[in-house]
């Protein structure tokens, strides 16, 4: 991975006051500052402009900047709140906040719904669910017959589509998660509680500057 030439905190595009970010997210101020270290590392790994591009996100997730993945694409698109093709620092911290162990469960449920609502219609449709299952199978090199995939999707729809209209709305999604809480397990990153241990260099360099 490359290295940032800009060391000064204020030079990061979209840099926001840690106090404000801490007040709007489950992170403490020092955790927000530690996240800045991670952000700097990710945002200059390929293009040294202080913004996270999709290729940089893919590189961080897969150690391969060219690896296409439906779910990584969806996550990136949700992080890119301004929809300008890059994730800035504020977007990064606020979006990661949803994955904090202390984040509001409702926020996690809503984020997961938006993630799986591939075409942003306000519903998770049968075709979208099938597309995601196929993407997962492809990624895992698992081969299942179309009949088996249909069975998996049918079974899930019987469980989730309480109104029987062939699509899952937000209310039905909430009910499904209530029944199967493990469905949003991937919306919590335990790492985020120990972020200052993982990226202590900001804290250390701030102390040095203070002296």
């Amino acid at each position: 991975m490359g290295c940032c030439s800009s060391k000064k905190v204020g030079r990061t595009p979209g840099y926001e006051d840690p106090t404000i970010l801490a007040s709007e997210t489950p992170f403490t101020e020092s955790e927000v500052e530690a996240l800045h270290e991670l952000y700097k590392k990710l945002s200059c790994s390929i293009i040294d402009d202080g913004l996270i591009h999709k290729e940089e996100f893919q590189l961080a997730l897969f150690r391969n900047s060219k690896r296409k993945n439906l779910f990584a694409d969806r996550i990136f698109d949700l992080f890119d709140v301004k929809r300008n093709g890059v994730v800035d620092y504020g977007e990064f911290v606020r979006s990661l906040g949803v994955f904090h162990p202390n984040a509001n469960v409702e926020d996690k449920i809503n984020f997961a719904f938006r993630l799986y609502d591939l075409r942003q219609t306000g519903y998770i449709e049968r075709e979208e669910l099938k597309e995601m299952v196929l993407a997962l199978l492809h990624e895992s090199d698992l081969i299942l017959s179309d009949d088996v995939v249909e069975t998996i999707v049918d079974k899930t729809f019987r469980d989730a589509d309480l109104k029987g209209d062939g699509k899952i709305d937000q209310e039905e999604w909430k009910e499904l998660v209530k029944k199967h809480p493990t469905l949003i397990k991937n919306m919590t990153l335990p790492y985020l509680k120990d972020i200052t241990l993982a990226f202590p260099s900001f804290v250390l360099s701030s102390e040095v500057e203070d002296i």
Partner: peptide, 26 residues
């Protein structure tokens, strides 16, 4: 569990593309 008996969303949640934990690996 066999994929056939799993809820499709449970299956999907195992995707590497959803494992943001790798962002924190040095």
């Amino acid at each position: 569990a066999s994929p056939v008996t799993m809820n499709a969303f449970e299956l999907i949640s195992t995707s590497q593309g959803l494992n943001l934990g790798t962002l924190f690996e040095k």
